[in-house]
């Protein structure tokens, strides 16, 4: 089986789920974050036989990592609304998050994207780290400034590299392929290199376009791009890459 793991509100993932089904990826199980916390029965083991899990969802489906052929993972958080107000709510939140980190780690490849120590579906990096990394990858980058006297509350407002209103476009990398508008080879190669060094095979990269002297420049990155921007070609490639391990399917 293959897994599409996402929030129930992730319309981009739901679109991809339908598209992958249409491409013959079967059985492809849609597993939402909500299903994983509401009346699911968990059995996760780590030891001499490696890491395994067996999750029985409330609807009776059983997810066993040994039967999984590939995964699209877009989990960002652990929804525990049903425990809100409980005296140990914050503790439960920490525990569930730690459990999710571990069972996602036990999922077999290919996985787009795998859990990292700083994010359930790929590392969530601060914009300063992305811009630093983009330069290492060979992408043109604007200068970035941050200081103790900035008026930004990052819990409310994301920092941006480019001023609000700057026209940008999003490209999506999937392994060694780049999906988006036509771009110079140097930019395409830089995008692929950024995906590689950030260990985020499915990466959304925002680029500024159309400026007079620097036609293309890095403007941001996310491990959770809107997959619809990659269109049908992205889904074709995603299906192809997921299908590699089809023999493990039941």
């Amino acid at each position: 089986m293959w897994l599409m793991i996402c929030s129930a509100q992730d319309t981009s993932a739901l679109w991809a789920y339908q598209g992958l089904l249409a491409r013959g990826l079967h059985p492809l199980e849609l597993v939402t974050a909500e299903m994983l916390t509401l009346n699911a029965k968990w059995e996760h083991t780590v030891g001499v036989n490696g890491a395994n899990f067996n999750v029985t969802l409330a609807d009776g489906r059983v997810i066993d990592n040994r039967l999984v052929s590939g995964v699209v993972n877009r989990l960002t958080h652990v929804p525990l609304d049903h425990l809100a107000g409980a005296p140990d709510f914050e503790y439960a939140q920490q525990e569930y998050s730690a459990l999710f980190m571990s069972w996602l780690k036990a999922l077999p490849s290919p996985i787009f994207n795998g859990v990292q120590s700083h994010g359930l579906s790929g590392a969530w990096r601060h914009v300063s780290e992305w811009v630093w990394m983009a330069a290492q990858a060979g992408l043109p980058t604007p200068s970035y400034q941050q200081s103790s006297h900035d008026g930004i509350d990052e819990s409310q407002q994301l920092r941006r590299i480019v001023p609000a209103g700057t026209p940008t476009t999003m490209v999506i990398t999937l392994g060694d392929r780049v999906f988006g508008p036509n771009m110079p080879a140097q930019i395409g190669n830089g995008c692929k290199e950024l995906a590689r060094i950030s260990q985020t095979p499915l990466l959304g990269i925002e680029l500024t376009v159309g400026q007079a002297h620097v036609p293309w420049s890095f403007a941001g990155a996310t491990p959770m791009p809107d997959l619809r921007l990659g269109g049908e070609p992205l889904l074709d490639e995603l299906a192809r890459r997921l299908y590699v391990n089809r023999r493990r399917s039941n």
Partner: peptide
């Protein structure tokens, strides 16, 4: 961040040749 989840970290630890204790995480 790897220390945020002990079983996550245990999976990394195993790669470096250490034994990790038999572990069960469950709500059953």
């Amino acid at each position: 961040g790897s220390n945020f989840s002990k079983p996550f970290q245990a999976q990394l630890i195993k790669r470096y040749g250490f034994e990790v204790p038999e572990t069960l995480i469950t709500n059953d």
